[in-house]
Design a protein around this nucleic acid. Sequence first.
DNA 1: ATAGTAAATACATTATGCATAATAATAGTC
DNA 2: GACTATTATTATGCATAATGTATTTACTAT
Lengths: 243, 243
Amino acid sequence: MNVEGTLDQDDPYVAAPPSSRRRGVLADEVAGYVRQLILTGSLRPGTKIDQDAVGRALDVSRSPIREALVVLGHEGLLDLTPRRGASVAQLRREDIIDHYELFGVVSGRAAAMAAELLDEDQIRELNELHSRFTGDDQEVLQQLNHDFHRVINLAAPRRTRWLLRHLERTVPANYYEFADGWNHRAVEHHASILEAITRRDPEGARSAMEGHLHESGVAAADQLEERGFFTDPDTGGPAEAGQ
Amino acid sequence: MNVEGTLDQDDPYVAAPPSSRRRGVLADEVAGYVRQLILTGSLRPGTKIDQDAVGRALDVSRSPIREALVVLGHEGLLDLTPRRGASVAQLRREDIIDHYELFGVVSGRAAAMAAELLDEDQIRELNELHSRFTGDDQEVLQQLNHDFHRVINLAAPRRTRWLLRHLERTVPANYYEFADGWNHRAVEHHASILEAITRRDPEGARSAMEGHLHESGVAAADQLEERGFFTDPDTGGPAEAGQ
DNA sequence: ATAGTAAATACATTATGCATAATAATAGTC
DNA sequence: GACTATTATTATGCATAATGTATTTACTAT
């Protein structure tokens, strides 16, 4: 075997499970594991997923693995071909940009509703979170950013929140610290979003949020490009489907 | 198998009867089956899914069933509680409206891009389809409606098209003929969308499309309400989670 | 009689075995 | 020597068996 992109040496399926006991839902565990490998770039687009290899790495059988692959396929991270298994889906720059654009229109809807529906306490909480958005601890900033958006999304109805969670999970970056200088601009964006919400201006909030996520997308794509996420390490050119 | 020391010449083992049964991807089959049951209202919200019962009904084992349930859970049609199985998710009127609203913003994005990117041939095709939108054969109208939107969505990038397919599949109605009088209004909506696209007016196309889907949502919700989709047949009140 | 606990049962989840499609390897032919 | 056909191997997908957990039921003690 040893087809281009398969494991053997340089085995990407490395991490062992944290501890044997305490096994929750294995399929979720597997999904998270493979998702991480994809989003961090350890598994290049086009590479086939070796079910047995994953099973060995995590010490689980194929049933939960199959379920995980189905989920990831549904998330758009894997291509599932009937009798030929799963392979990592292509993720081009265009896809990242597009994804954040979608994120923008959906998040924009949430922001517009937030401008109408959030109560004073929640707006205070947003201000609270916003004011703490300083320093350079990426972990903390990540969390604050997440919380900020979460409070806004509370104003959106169930289905919208569900889609936002979905969109959040299926795109690379924001696993990583953003590029330098990004935090500064993010603060400005958040400020204008917050201002529009405080002003009770739905359309203002929507367009501020859309703009924020548009720029986030560009930043994320740049970040990924810099990390060589879009370029095939072998050819140096853009990554293409394996064989 | 049949590693070494096997019989080469004089092979008495004739080919097995080719008939048997060649089945496609069972999980998809199961998913379609259960999805239909849910979207048509045969399975009320809150109802638990009996895996064995499904297996008996379709004569398949649990593996493809589980995979199907995972997919449906991911689509938001089922609630998957870790050690307690799957149950039909609540679908309230609010969810339908919200869903179509999301459909609107995403479809609106596609329409805006269509106004910029569709070539003359494609616009001609839209006119073609639009002009045939008469009569009262629900099947044909359904198809024409679908094609109309499909051509527009061609202008959108991959990820957006993917999300649109996703949104299309996970909502009830449009499995059913819409209410009387709806076709007439749909034609008007399509006309204004088409007009904006012809005018190369992205924002006009966007808002026309958003309006179209907003009204579609209301129509679909009304239709479902009329059919008693939201009311529990036992209590007569709104359907609630089963025990 | 009721509440609490423990056994029993039902069922979701995971593991394993097996048949078959897909792919790689090999032999045979032009 | 290159190309095609045939065989062998690998891995996927489905079925069945085993395992563990949640829930119900029965029983005992207060």
